[in-house]
Design a protein around this nucleic acid. Structure first.
Lengths: 200, 200, 200, 200
DNA sequence: AATGAATGAGCGTTCATTCAT
DNA sequence: CATGAATGAACGCTCATTCAT
């Protein structure tokens, strides 16, 4: 049964990949199930064996991709052994994520409004890649090694992520009210102040 | 021609009202033009005399309603003559808007992600009610009477509005990660710090 | 009342001109009454004061334009005093009309299938310009001065016109089965033979 | 899969048959896709599985029917073994087609302007019935057995077909300028002359 | 005579979903 | 498990026509 399970997983991933590429290129509402299955090379009925509907596959996709951008950033952080300070580490991750957004504007459309949701809910609802590390677990481990302790560290992170994702959306996509590069110093200073506000 | 123009304005407003009520009750994508015109009591073709398509009426609606919640808050502020401090005034307005969101969850769905857009762009793009005061002009007048001066006051407001609208969305609709009432003190303290950061 | 009648005639002509230009540029079925009145600068209801519907204005237009291409050709013929032979005169007219078609492909679309109809029916049904000479009367006058007499001269002309218009349609528009220039010698030889067949 | 393919072919033919009957009875522009699918007993969406749009099904129909009238005539010719002369054979076929037009006026509306197109292009563009013999191939085989050779035999046939279809249109539908029966002798004599003109 | 706002039936088309194979 | 033909309700939108002004 291993082979069959493997094939099933392949179909699932193929559908997710096709949906992702179509959603970010053509937009969610302009992508039909037909488009997805055509791109994935499976039959229409097959879609419904794996996902309830278009909203279902989008949710899975957001989880998956949100996880990915966090992990990409965290992986990059590992190559900077000199960044030992918790707050600097978080800022590095944020900066890396914003750079991913700049490099791929379509990611913003899919993820931006769901960053904090991806951060907190991700590991609870979906396990598309069962072996993928949990963002939240990583955050807790980083916290435990931090120089300071923080009150309500989840709420602190929630505020930071909402600030980041909300304000970067227009900056990345429309350079409004300023470009992302102009925005960054303001943003990072505010993040530092939020840290200060929660430091014990 | 006065009577005709009056009737036209009535039709326009009727369509906007119907669309608003249907969008917030059933959602934008589940509301059809048919639904709107049926509710407004006009013929289908009439819709297209006033709006280009469903997206067009939504944009007008967002402008209109964003303006309204700001103005509601500002009007309420007038009854508090004791609030003379600029920062306290802004916090009062924010609090009032969040209370409007709490009272009408559907407003959140429509406006939350567009608050800052409504704040800055509103008066430029749409003038559905030509005599309505501009939010932005009000903000500038408040600024001019403030005790302190602020660097980049627009950017400051942008950060505040994105923080507020982003973080209140889940709190209002899903009590996540905490209820709005639990969130408010955190939020307002962060806003105060942002003020501090921009004060000259 | 002369002035009013003049204004009315102006509106009528304006509508005809707009309809012509739109029909030949965008096609009959892709032109709406709205388009016509917008282009003509009159109100929608006004259209219905002058024409029954879109088909009505098209018929008037075909008459008008068919008359015009014939008269253009006939006028040009007047400058060739040396062409005294009836058959040569008809061939000259045909050639001139085909050249008008080549110069303005859109004329073909509108008129080609109606050439003989324009020739025979024109003066009976429509009198858009009451003082315009009748094509048919011109033909009869040319006939009366001809060297030979012809059996069934109307039927002869009918066959010639159908042959010309039918075969030139694809040649002008699509160079199919050959270009108009390649087709012409074949066509004119056949026309000469039809003359021969009807000569008494 | 044989059964499925058979059902598909049935649906296709059913749609073509319904479209034909509606186009010729009510006219192309007054026939809606709704009418066609209702008549064919299939769902609206099914139409779009088989044809791109209304123009697509009309083109297929013209091909199909043009082929049919030619083949009907050719089949009838087979029962007249005494007709061995090429020119007589062609005249027989023409006469047979005109009789089909007389018997079914609606055929004229659909086909008349497309006879030569059906003759030449038919077999290139559409193969609704893959096993149907090509009109053009039949013509070439008839030519090869002819007593005489002809210059430009395709162009010759083009002129004949355009003459026939153009002049018969008004005669069949409106008895204008004369009835088809009165027209025929004129027509056939002209066709004979065209033969003479191209005979080598 | 002229207007143009309003109508609403009807258009062509899409697409999530089902189900017989 | 997988297929893909078939469905048909629902979509956004057009436009010839009417009629109060």
């Amino acid at each position: 049964m291993n082979k069959i399970d493997y094939n099933k997983q392949q179909k699932r991933i193929s559908l997710l990949d096709s949906a992702f590429s179509l959603f970010i290129n053509n937009g969610f509402h302009k992508t039909s199930i037909s488009d997805i299955v055509k791109d994935a090379g499976v039959a229409k009925g097959t879609f419904y064996l794996y996902f309830k509907d278009k909203y279902d596959i989008r949710n899975h996709l957001i989880s998956r991709k949100a996880n990915q951008v966090f992990l990409n950033a965290y992986t990059a952080l590992q190559t900077h052994a000199e960044k030992t300070d918790f707050e600097e580490q978080v800022l590095f991750i944020i900066d890396h994520i914003l750079n991913q957004f700049t490099a791929n504007h379509n990611l913003v459309t899919l993820l931006s409004k769901h960053l904090s949701w991806g951060f907190f809910k991700n590991f609870l609802l979906f396990t598309p890649e069962p072996d993928a590390p949990s963002i939240f677990a990583i955050y807790e481990s980083m916290l435990s090694k931090a120089q300071y302790a923080y009150r309500s560290p989840e709420l602190m992170m929630y505020l930071i992520l909402e600030l980041i994702s909300g304000s970067s959306y227009n900056a990345v996509l429309y350079d409004q009210p300023v470009s992302l590069n102009e925005l960054k110093p303001h943003l990072y200073q505010t993040v530092r102040q939020i840290f200060g506000q929660y430091r014990i």
